[in-house]
Design a protein around this nucleic acid. Structure first.
Lengths: 371, 371
DNA sequence: GTGCCAAATGTGACCGGTCACAATGCCCCG
DNA sequence: CGGGGCATTGTGACCGGTCACATTTGGCAC
């Protein structure tokens, strides 16, 4: 269909410019389209060239920001571009250059706060760099489907591929795929278990455990995320390390699935007598669930048991009671992931990024330990 | 760079096939690449054609599912495709066809539960149809920036454009843009204020108000969303209509911004004496904030005041107390939006979709009205 | 005015898949 | 055994922007 559209007119337009140099400058008399409407289809550089009475290459040069164009020529090109409402066709461009302005983002669990924030940051960073983000939400679980989705990715020639959710499934599928383009797997930073000893007591989990220790808590329960998530493992490791560093006691690690329901069930399933004074949940949702379960058991928060989360979702400040938590900058993670990928695409070294420090936010869900 | 890669070899490969029909079938002897590695770049249909000793057109026909290919020929093509690990180049394809397999999704507020769920549904539906979703997250507010983002969209030739967030800003920007492709603005359905009288008492807000009326509530407060959102206006309208239909009293409509904070402040700002027995928040987050504000005022929920939300975010079941709310199927909304768009792209009539009914979920935040 | 050189501009091919149109090959009939 | 006609396959151009290279133009010195 797009082919057949008035090929003759196009042909004439291409040949016309060199003839009537002497005739009137006022367009519209010849076969050269002088306006977008007259053309009836998106303008190409050749349409613009014809109207500006230059070669398509000159138009191209102008668009590339080439300086050496005579002012008079340049002016004609500018006018023609405006008159025809020219917009470059990125598809054609990528066909020749072999590069595209698209980044594929593999993700799942888009309804989770973290991942969707990361996507938001990634989309921003991508757009700032003139790229668009192609979302490929995979339903994990069906390996067949993952495979098919990855196939799809390789066909849509992308400048690079980013994997954002950090489950083992994803990592595995990602590793096995042959994208033929730069790829970057954005896992959660190991910030919680910082290897810089100097920071151990000031950032992330150490700060959180510090806070609890100061309040006199000795025995802690960790409600962890699903083990298939590296973020969950990181946090669990960081928890254990911080506890050990403070000489406190971990009474156990229960695994949930990030949902409030799993946090609720983790607490509800405990024996009648609780042998801890603080619950450290690996995210705010599970903390919320734990909060309700404790309340239903007649346990007061924070008088009897303190509770903490991780993420600082916007709602956390309005839980009953408001939740003490570690704020994680997901948007920055997304931005950074894209920047890393862009660096790899451009074959530069990625900018040295400072650590993403998760910040302790103290609210009313933590208090002095019950005696 | 991709140009220069051994143009000679390519040229020879293109001409070679017809010569050595008699010589060995075993490849590798001539200049025709017989494997993906040997090629060192993605295989094209012409590479495949050369290896299969057919014309590029025959390969093309095979790929299009054309039946009339002699079995022996077909077999050679199949083998060549496999040997060279051929993957179609979608960029080249869209250049000629003028169609692409990409849908642009304009959105903002990706951190909101509703929008991100809608995106999830849209991405699923898109992928099911072989499309990918290009996310274009706009920062509303800066009209300059919106404009620029829309420019970007028109350059990435997309099969269609979808706008998902339903603020007036978006609607306006969307309406003003000239996408040159099918576009679809997915606003929230007017489901809450259904015009089908028969459904008025069974779905959405009517059901919610029904529920409260049965519990004896007479005086209601609505915490609405921001007026710039059509969803907020719909819900406010539906609230008023349902109240009127039941002969109840609306003591007022306070506008928040969807966040828990705004719900909290809406209640905190009220005079000491509350003249309502139920708060109807336009979403669950604001209900959460209201819940905390009431608690801090010493008001018990649901004994003194009942509270309801809308959306049924996963956390709502674990608020303290668990929230009575209207469940909205955002994923279905996203799917439907994409299906509508795809229908428009294919110039078919969209499938007749049944109403998306929001379902009342009764939990413990509502109880009999205080006397 | 002439010649030279760099600056400015033009030409044609190409990316890879698709399209319109041609040219074979093959089978069967008279 | 020749020829009609369909089945099968091939040819070349095209989409629009880019690249490598060729050609023209202008400015300046002589």
């Amino acid at each position: 269909m797009p082919h057949g559209t008035a090929p003759l007119e196009t042909g004439e337009a291409r040949d016309a410019p060199r003839d009537d140099l002497s005739s009137e400058v006022t367009p519209g008399a010849g076969t050269v389209a002088a306006s977008a409407e007259e053309l009836g289809r998106p303008a190409t550089i050749r349409d613009v060239a014809a109207l500006a009475r230059v070669s398509h290459q000159t138009v191209h040069r102008f668009l590339q920001g080439y300086e050496g164009i005579r002012p008079t020529t340049r002016e004609r090109v500018v006018e023609a571009l405006a008159a025809l409402e020219y917009r470059p066709n990125l598809t054609a461009r990528s066909l020749t250059t072999g590069r595209s302005m698209r980044i594929g983002a593999l993700t799942h669990e888009l309804d989770q706060f973290g991942p969707s924030k990361i996507i938001q940051g990634a989309a921003q960073a991508a757009r700032d760099a003139g790229y668009v983000l192609d979302i490929l939400s995979l339903d994990m679980g069906d390996p067949e489907e993952i495979d098919q989705a990855l196939q799809t990715v390789t066909q849509h020639d992308l400048a690079g591929v980013l994997a954002l959710a950090s489950t083992d499934h994803m990592a595995q599928a990602f590793g096995a795929a042959n994208f033929r383009v730069p790829a970057f797997l954005a896992g959660e930073e190991d910030e919680f278990a910082s290897h810089h000893p100097s920071q151990l007591t000031t950032v992330g989990f150490p700060a959180l455990i510090d806070h609890l220790a100061e309040l006199g808590h000795q025995r802690l329960l960790h409600v962890a995320g699903p083990t298939a998530w590296s973020a969950a493992r990181n946090r669990a490791r960081a928890f254990e390390a911080a506890v050990a560093a403070h000489g406190l006691v971990s009474v156990g690690v229960v695994h949930g699935d990030w949902t409030a329901r799993s946090g609720y069930e983790a607490i509800a399933a405990l024996p009648a007598r609780l042998d801890f004074t603080a619950v450290i949940a690996a995210n705010d949702q599970m903390a919320l669930g734990a909060l309700l379960a404790l309340r239903e058991r007649g346990v007061r928060v924070p008088e009897d048991v303190s509770i903490t989360g991780v993420d600082d979702i916007p709602d956390a400040a309005y839980f009953s009671p408001p939740l003490t938590t570690l704020r994680v900058d997901f948007v920055a993670q997304g931005r950074r992931a894209v920047e890393h990928l862009l660096a790899r695409i451009a074959q530069r070294e990625p900018a040295d990024d400072e650590a993403l420090i998760s910040q302790l936010v103290v609210r009313r869900s933590t208090g002095t330990a019950a005696p």
